[in-house]
Simulated scan of single mutants.
Amino acid sequence: MIGSYRIAKDGASVSTLGWTMAVLVAAGVCTAAAATSNDRLVEERFFEDRERGWHWYELMPVEEEESEEAVETEQATEQPQPESGEPAGPAPMSAEWIRQELPRLRDRAIDSPTERNVQAYFYAQRIMMDKAQVFSNMAQRVTTSDPLLDENLRLPFASAARAATLASAAEAKTGIVEELSEKAGLWVFFDETCEFCRQQLQPINRFAERHSMEMRIISRQGRQIAGVNRRVRVLPDTGQFENLGIDFTPAVMLVVPPEGFYIVSQGFIDYASLVDRLVGAAGHYGLIEKDKYLAARPTERGVIDASRLDNTETVDWSDSDSWVPFIQREITRVYGIGPTPNGGMR
């Protein structure tokens, strides 16, 4: 038993030794093969690059990371640049250029008032003023040569012609009031405690003297009022104040039977303003013809209501050559005039 054990143990030792020797031999063979392979690779590389000679001490180039400055420079170079001939900003001395530069030049001249800075600001301002003068001259030329743009067509500038036009308008207003007298009357709301009600009597009396329109004074207290023109009847308040919403006195209302009640004024009003407001109310509520109304108010002739343009034709609003003729036709329509065959105006 003991001998067997020793033999087995010695056998195991021998076996172990054999395996160890085998591993070492294999490793040596692999090492030798690897060394041979490396030597052969070096030899091949030497013969491939033999013209450079021996270069054991040559330093191989190291790839460095690009610096941030180089990357930014490259990116800036790659950004598209404006083509030659295209301005990077507004044209020099243009209105846009002046609008941008003049405040900057002014601030610079204020903060650093050197001769050069102040001179630069005033030269830029000079250009701006001269451009405005050139525009003004052309604007005057255009508006005076085009009757549709000339305000002289609406109301003459010359003193004599202007006076004649205004006199004619005053006559037209009188005619409108007389026309209203046939279908309407005036109610004047009066309160004895009102400071301005008694002062309102003078314009009311003057209106009664010049026009035939029926007039009534509605008195809150219901008593007779001294100094009233005998054509004007004074009536007590029987609910008119409350029903018609009269909160302030004196007040004047245009009454058109059976159901037309139009406030003309609340507060004191003089004679001329009373007549003018009556004309305005008549025109606004359609109580008179439009031609008569425009004759009484010449400054409203040719006024275009942009919200009511008769845009039944195709107009390119991005092209002034398309929409300017359209506006011209609209102005001639509201003026009641038009072009003649020879190109003039009727």
Rank of each mutant, 00 (worst) to 15 (best):
A88Q: 10
I217D: 00
D305N: 13
L244W: 01
G185D: 09
Y57R: 04
P258V: 14
V279H: 11
E242W: 02
W19Q: 12
A208H: 01
I304R: 10
P203R: 01
Y335M: 14
R126I: 01
S15D: 12
V188Q: 02
E44Y: 09
E78A: 15
S318F: 12
M253E: 11
Q119F: 05
P236W: 02
A132S: 08
P339S: 11
N229S: 07
I331E: 06
V118Y: 01
L105Y: 02
E69S: 15
G89M: 03
E78C: 08
R231K: 10
S67A: 02
P236I: 01
G338Q: 04
G245Q: 07
Y293A: 15
Y123C: 03
R126K: 06
R52Q: 09
G53R: 04
W187C: 03
S307G: 02
V14N: 08
E115Y: 14
A27K: 12
R6S: 13
I331Q: 13
D316G: 13
Q125E: 14
D270V: 06
G338P: 02
Q100P: 04
E66T: 12
W97Y: 11
I304Q: 05
W323A: 09
E68V: 04
V62L: 14
V279Q: 05
A76M: 07
A295G: 11
T114S: 11
G336C: 13
N152P: 07
A163K: 13
G222C: 03
M128D: 09
A95T: 06
Y57A: 10
E63Q: 10
T340W: 05
D111M: 08
E74I: 06
S168H: 12
T114M: 05
W97G: 03
T193N: 08
L244A: 00
G18I: 14
I176K: 01
G280V: 09
S112Y: 13
R220E: 11
L166Q: 11
W187D: 03
V324F: 11
G175Y: 00
A26W: 09
Y5R: 14
P341D: 10
V334W: 08
A251D: 01
V25Y: 08
T340R: 14
A281R: 13
S145E: 12
E65C: 15
V315R: 09
